[in-house]
Structures are given as C-alpha cells and as structure tokens.
C-alpha cells in the first residue's frame, strides 16, 4: 500500500493507458495535496521566474518584472543572476510542505519534488554545475541536514559544495522585506578547495526564491570566482 508523502493518506492510483506505455510519471503526493500545488507554467518573468498571471501588468516591462529590473540597476548585483526557474507558486500548500521539510525536519519530502526538478534541470540547465545554497555550520548541525543539498541530491547528478555560509545570521524567513534585501554580500564564502571556475555555468539550488537576495549574494561569489553564468532552481516562488 502506498501513502501520500505529505499527508500520509492512502494513495489511490487510477490506472490509465499512459501506464501501459510507461508515459505516466507518478506523483508521490496524493491527489488532494498535489492539486494544492500550483505549477508555474506559461508566461513568466525572464529574471526571477514569477508567473505573469499572478501580478498586474503595470509591474513589468516586456517580460521582466520591476523587481528584477531594480536588481539589474544595482551596480553590485547587475548581471549576476542569469535566470531563476521555480517549480511551483509559493502558496499555502507549498508553504506547509516546505515548513514540514525544513522546520519539522522531514527530509523525506524532498523526494516528492524529484521528477519536476530533474525535468527543469535537463530542459534549462543541462550540464551546468549544481551548487546548493549552504547553511551555516551551526544551523546545519541543528537541523541535521541542508534542505538545498537534499534537493540537489534529487537531480542524481554530482553536486558541488563550493560555497560556505559564514556567520549565523537570523533566519531570512524571520525578516521583513527591506531587511532581507540588505543581505550582507559577505554571507557566503568560496570554499577553500574550489578549482578555478573559469568557463563554468553554475546552477544554484534552494527551496524558495522570495526577494532573490540570498540567491544573488551566493551567485555574486561564484561570479567573482570566474563562473561564466549563474542561474538558479527553486521549488517555490
């Protein structure tokens, strides 16, 4: 008997013709939980991957949202992040799943995103070096795992711990927007044993893209180390 990864209800699977041809990909979440997740598809922001239908047109120019344009206007962070692709809209269901994974420590839930993560990686970033966003040593110990690393593992390609997170700051999720945007550019450091990155395309992995401050701070370090381009994949946006 199978059970839903999130709510532990019995998973009832309907058999369809797709099963006969091996076309169907099974979700590890039950129908109710899966329906709560809103996939990001169709038109999205070129920069941060936000779904166009979710914010009014006056907040974007062409395909790019004003937030991303603002980032590009910043001298330090201009051209740092090539693009971000997110799997789902960060709605109540996804919030609940990610909160259970991160704060309750249910690492197993990362497996529920495997299919989609692999799909996005092969379509957009095939061959890129995978770099999960690190946690500080203390936070990593406290949690027992790094959720970004778990998600990177789901891609089934080797990933690189090229970054370290320096100090034990307050959690990004406990800050206001303006506080988050002020993230210190020295939060991340390059790991001491990193080979020269010249000519490498990198893709960062994290759980949620909220303001983009964390991802850009990490991308900046990789760029400074010589990376050709830095993109990112997150679960929520």
């Amino acid at each position: 008997m199978k059970r839903c990864l999130f709510c532990h209800e019995t998973l009832v699977e309907e058999v369809s013709w797709n099963d006969c041809f091996g076309l169907r990909k099974r979700s590890l979440f039950c129908d109710t939980c899966y329906k709560g997740l809103e996939e990001i598809s169709g038109e999205r922001c070129d920069g941060c991957g936000r779904k166009h239908s979710l914010f009014p047109e006056q907040y974007r120019q062409n395909m790019t949202c004003l937030d991303c344009i603002k980032w590009e206007g910043n001298a330090l962070y201009s051209q740092v992040l090539q693009r971000n692709i997110s799997l789902y809209v960060y709605n109540e269901t996804l919030k609940a799943i990610i909160a259970k994974m991160k704060y309750r420590g249910d690492a197993e839930l990362a497996k529920g995103f495997q299919q989609k993560l692999q799909q996005v990686y092969t379509t957009f970033f095939h061959g890129y070096a995978v770099v999960p966003i690190p946690l500080s040593e203390e936070r990593h110990y406290e949690r027992g795992f790094n959720q970004a690393e778990l998600l990177a593992q789901q891609l089934n390609v080797p990933y690189e711990n090229w970054l370290t997170r320096q100090r034990h700051e307050n959690k990004q999720s406990k800050k206001t927007r303006s506080e988050r945007l002020k993230i210190n550019q020295h939060t991340f450091l390059l790991h001491s044993e990193v080979p020269p990155l010249t000519g490498t395309h990198c893709v960062l992995i994290d759980d949620v893209y909220t303001t983009g401050a964390t991802i850009r701070a990490a991308a900046l370090i990789l760029k400074q180390a010589g990376a050709l381009s830095v993109s990112s994949i997150t679960i929520g946006r």
């Binding site: 690492a107 197993e108 778990l150």
Partner: peptide, 20 residues
C-alpha cells in the same frame, strides 16, 4: 525514513516521521 545526517555523519540515519 533515512537521511544523510549532519549530526552523526552517517549516510543512513533513520528518523521517525510519526512524531515529527
């Protein structure tokens, strides 16, 4: 479920999902 645990450094550290 199993995870690679940063506390004990083992690859198959089992945890209980019922009393999370």
């Amino acid at each position: 479920a199993k995870l690679t645990c940063f506390q004990c450094k083992e690859h198959d550290c089992v945890y209980c999902r019922k009393c999370l």
